[in-house]
Amino acid sequence: TGEEYIAVGDFTAQQVGDLTFKKGEILLAIEKKPDGWWIAKDAKGNEGLVPRTYLEPYS
């Protein structure tokens, strides 16, 4: 299990392996990579890379 984050903006996948999401979606951070791209999972179970700058902790 990971930590929940809320998307603060829309993001469209730029390449294969990225995860597209919309502002307000809750994402589960699976792995926090030091380069600023995290592996996350959305509510539908889709998994991919997301930019850290689009996420804020969800409580």
Rank of each mutant, 00 (worst) to 15 (best):
G24P: 01
V8M: 12
E47G: 05
Q15L: 09
G17H: 06
W37N: 07
D10G: 06
K32W: 06
T1M: 13
Y54I: 07
E47I: 15
G9V: 13
E25C: 05
L49Y: 14
R52S: 15
G45A: 04
G2Q: 13
V50P: 03
P57T: 07
I39K: 09
G36D: 07
Y5I: 01
P51A: 06
A13N: 04
R52K: 14
D35F: 05
Q14Y: 09
G45Y: 02
V8P: 01
Y5Q: 01
V8E: 02
G36M: 06
E3A: 10
L28Q: 09
T20D: 07
E4Y: 15
V8C: 09
P34L: 11
A40N: 01
Y58A: 08
K41R: 15
Y5N: 01
Q15S: 13
E47Y: 14
D10H: 06
V8L: 13
V50G: 02
S59P: 12
E31G: 07
G45I: 01
I26K: 06
A7K: 01
V16M: 11
A40E: 02
A43K: 11
E25G: 04
T12I: 12
G36Y: 05
E25M: 08
L19S: 01
W37E: 03
G24Y: 05
G17C: 06
E31N: 11
L27P: 00
I39C: 09
E47L: 14
G24N: 06
Y58Q: 06
K41C: 08
S59I: 14
K23H: 06
A13M: 06
A40Y: 04
D10M: 03
S59W: 12
Q14K: 12
I30H: 03
D42M: 00
K41W: 05
L55Y: 02
K41E: 05
P57W: 07
I30Q: 04
K23R: 11
Y54S: 08
P51K: 08
T1W: 14
E56C: 12
L55G: 00
L55N: 01
R52T: 12
E3D: 12
Y5F: 10
E25Q: 13
F11R: 07
E3R: 11
K33G: 11
G36S: 04
K32H: 06
D10W: 05
I30L: 12
K23V: 08
K22Y: 10
E56A: 12
A40G: 05
D10S: 10
N46Q: 10
A7W: 01
P51N: 14
K23W: 05
K33P: 06
L28M: 11
Y58S: 07
I6F: 06
P51W: 10
W38S: 00
T1L: 13
W38N: 00
E56F: 09
G48S: 02
A40D: 01
Q15V: 10
E4R: 15
